[in-house]
Amino acid sequence: MTRTLISETVLRRRRGRLLHLTAVAVTVVVFAFVFLFPLYWMVTGAVKDPDELARATPTLIPETWNLDSFATAWTQLQIGKYFLNTAFYAVGGWFIQIAVDVCAAYALSRLRPWGGRVVLGAMLASLMLPATALLIPAYMTVADVPLFGVNLLNTPWALWLPAAANAFNIYLLKRFFDQIPGELLDAASIDGAGRLRILWSVVLPLSRPVLSVVSIFAVIGMWKDFLWPFLVLQDPDTQTLSVALSRLANTSYITDSEMFAGLVIASVPMVVIFLALQRQILAGLSAGGVKG
């Protein structure tokens, strides 16, 4: 018997079914409006004339469609340069996160070291801390790395190293690794495969769904992050796209419509990635949560 918020008896009635469909439709419309209206406002702001955008009474539908703002924003804001910076940081952060998180999850799931439960509990407890509470300790660490005395500010490592050990990704990977039958790993071990060979040849090929999810989260997280890159990348030549747009927004030669156009360009890659890979995201999230 399936448990639902509304009983099947009520749903069989015409009035109950109508009220249920109405409630679902209203909820979907409200949530769609809340999430999609900011995107709509950003896109329409990019194509409006600067005078129309500066009016005291805003217009929901643009009176004029000025597509030249995208070309102007690309050149004036140097979006191509900062786009490449952000892509470089995202790819490097993805590689380091995958390397660190996979090894940590594999060790906790299959190697089971002494104190592994304590380590996993400490990692999960770190998720309860607000990210802003860790900004000052993290900044002091990358500004003067303990023992080494190296300053990582304005370098890619200031972004990559703090994001390397992601507690959520490690937990997600560990949950998936726990579902892999032990017989497969034992068979590989009998054939002479070592721990690393088992990880590379057996575990990783079976973990493609969850690896896809972790990869998507890693790339999107590096791409859209603003506060941390704003703190550690003060050199304009090293800044990400979001930080550069924030800095250039205060300049006098950039109009509001050109800034909106820059924001649209910066948002397009992540929107495309999410729409194209949303099935993989849902499949990967649910893959490790069900015993099979």
Rank of each mutant, 00 (worst) to 15 (best):
L77A: 14
L231V: 15
S207K: 00
A167R: 10
D49K: 03
T255C: 03
A73G: 07
R14T: 13
A46F: 01
M42D: 03
A261P: 05
Q78T: 08
V91L: 15
A104H: 06
D186L: 12
L161V: 15
M128P: 04
S257H: 01
Q239L: 06
N166H: 07
L196M: 13
Q278A: 09
L241M: 11
R55T: 04
A87W: 09
L277M: 13
V214G: 06
H20V: 03
W228S: 07
V100W: 01
K174G: 06
Q76H: 14
V150R: 10
P146E: 09
G149A: 10
L53K: 00
S207R: 02
V145A: 06
K81N: 10
C103I: 12
L84W: 06
F35N: 12
A276R: 08
L60I: 04
D144K: 15
A54L: 10
A143W: 10
E63Q: 11
P62F: 00
A73S: 13
W228H: 10
P181N: 14
W157D: 05
P130I: 06
T2I: 13
A266F: 03
A56N: 12
M128H: 08
I6N: 05
T57M: 04
Q97P: 02
F177S: 04
L19T: 11
I281D: 03
I281T: 06
A23Q: 09
F148Y: 11
F168H: 02
N169K: 02
G149M: 08
V30A: 15
F226R: 09
R175M: 14
S7F: 04
K224G: 14
L211F: 06
R112M: 07
R55K: 10
V119D: 09
F230R: 12
W223I: 06
I265Q: 02
R117S: 12
L108G: 04
F95D: 04
G262W: 00
E183G: 11
V214S: 06
L53M: 03
A73E: 04
Y253N: 13
D235M: 11
Y171G: 09
L211S: 03
A71C: 06
I79M: 10
I98L: 13
M128A: 14
M123W: 07
L53I: 01
V145P: 04
T141P: 03
T240V: 13
A163Q: 08
D101A: 02
D191W: 01
I220V: 15
V243R: 03
W74T: 09
G115T: 07
T72S: 12
Q78V: 07
Q239G: 03
I254C: 00
R55Q: 13
V10F: 08
A283W: 06
V213C: 07
R17H: 08
A23N: 09
L241K: 08
I180S: 07
E183S: 15
D178N: 10
D144A: 15
